[in-house]
């Protein structure tokens, strides 16, 4: 034995990457900057205030939640993303206490109650949004048009009421009423492509999700481009359906997740009472994630499948 040499014995994994939770979270925050900026540009400084309030409240809630659980609090940035995503899917007119309540609920009930980062079944930001929609339905469906702040309906709301389709170019650049971060498909696409190019996000989920909605809507005789760009589909597909914790880990599983969520969106939009269903579609598919992972488990290398009825 060489003097001074201490062999390091540990279990796998032995190959380690420089990618950390913190690094991924930072990349997601960077990817969300275009959508946030477009929201603030379109809906004014109040939108920025909503974003700041939501993030602050999320981080403080996480600190308190971990303290209450007796766990060590690490500033890994996941709470920042939850707060930011929640703010981006709120209407720009909400009073400031709403993102605060929503973020606290998202973090404390949606995440800490399940055991913290990596343990939650449902996407915390969407849990927060669902809670706010349930509790204050009127405040959560008050929409204003960009720049002038005149109250109006969202493109999907107009469509649901039978008032026709908003031009696709308006939807693409975001010059329509809607949640703070969901209106501009272009801004979300920039961030989404950045995440896919950096390999932080699998392209399968967004593609299968958006593709399913487009194809089904086309089959049902609706303009597919309108349904793809309207509402929160892009924000949901790129940033919420791809959440590491609450979506499947296998490649096939991710496609199943995307197709299922797309199917639910089409069903809610076409036959449901709400004009938009992205939030609920992802939450419902989150519930199926363990099952999807179980059924799409890849074959173990070197193990042959047992023949049915064979010896």
């Amino acid at each position: 034995m060489i003097p001074g040499f201490k062999p390091l014995v540990s279990t796998s994994p032995h190959i380690k990457d420089k990618v950390s939770v913190r690094g991924i979270m930072l990349a997601v925050v960077i990817a969300l900057i275009p959508a946030t900026a477009s929201g603030v540009y379109l809906f004014g400084l109040h939108a920025l205030l909503v974003v700041v309030a939501s993030i602050t409240s999320a981080v403080i809630s996480e600190f308190l939640g971990y303290k209450a659980m007796g766990k060590k609090f690490t500033m890994d940035g996941s709470a920042v993303i939850t707060g930011l995503l929640l703010a981006l899917c709120l209407p720009p007119t909400v009073p400031i206490w709403m993102p605060v309540v929503g973020s606290s609920f998202a973090i404390l009930i949606g995440k800490c109650a399940f055991g913290g980062l990596g343990q939650n079944i449902f996407n915390p930001a969407l849990v927060g949004r669902a809670f706010l929609t349930l509790s204050w339905p009127a405040l959560m469906t008050t929409w204003v048009s960009p720049f002038d702040g005149v109250s109006t309906a969202t493109p999907l709301g107009e469509w649901h009421a039978g008032h026709g389709y908003t031009p696709v170019e308006n939807l693409f650049f975001g010059n329509v009423a809607g949640c703070i971060g969901e209106t501009s498909a272009l801004a979300i696409l920039i961030g989404g492509i950045f995440l896919i190019a950096m390999k932080y996000v699998d392209w399968r989920t967004p593609l299968s999700y958006i593709g399913t909605v487009g194809i089904l809507m086309w089959l049902l005789g609706e303009p597919p481009l309108f349904h793809i760009f309207a509402g929160g589909l892009f924000l949901g597909a790129f940033f919420m359906a791809t959440d590491y914790v609450t979506s499947p880990v296998t490649k096939t599983g991710r496609v199943v997740f995307g197709v299922g969520a797309g199917l639910l969106v089409v069903m809610i939009r076409m036959y449901g009472g709400f004009p938009e269903g992205v939030c609920y579609s992802i939450l419902i598919m989150n519930g199926f994630t363990p099952l999807i992972d179980r059924f799409t488990r890849p074959k173990v290398y070197g193990v042959m499948k047992k023949r049915e009825g064979g010896k």
């Binding site: 009073p95 009930i109 809670f131 349930l134 509790s135 204050w136 339905p137």
Partner: peptide, 19 residues
């Protein structure tokens, strides 16, 4: 001033009970 109407709807019951 702005009560959470969802609390007197069925989901509110599950939430309160669970918490």
């Amino acid at each position: 001033s702005s009560p959470a109407t969802g609390m007197i709807l069925p989901p509110g019951a599950f939430l309160v009970m669970g918490i």
